[in-house]
Design a protein around this nucleic acid. Sequence first.
DNA 1: GTTGTGACTCCAT
DNA 2: CATGGAGCCACAA
Length: 97
Amino acid sequence: MDEELHERVREVIASVPAGTVATYGDVAALAGAPSPRMIGRILSEDGHDLPWHRILRANGTPAPHLVHRQLELLRAEGVLARGQKVDLRTYRWHPEP
DNA sequence: GTTGTGACTCCAT
DNA sequence: CATGGAGCCACAA
């Protein structure tokens, strides 16, 4: 049944609309993942098809080696970042009922 | 079986 | 803002 979790995570990430971002914790919670760490691992292996650039850390900063990449892609979608930090308060994705 | 590492988060100092 | 400890799961050696 862990495959479903895998699918769920992918689905949640794919559900994040352009111009918005989500945190690892949010994705983990929405997908029912056991821990936010799994999100990173899944992205690292199966994130090639997913908008992984819309996934940020809890403080609004992307992962260390992708920082530049993330911010550039996000900027292309209209998500402006201040230095390395994105305004989660403004761009954080809010799932609709 | 343990140990170390990782695209993590939270809280205390 | 920096640092450290605790919690968490998966995988390689």
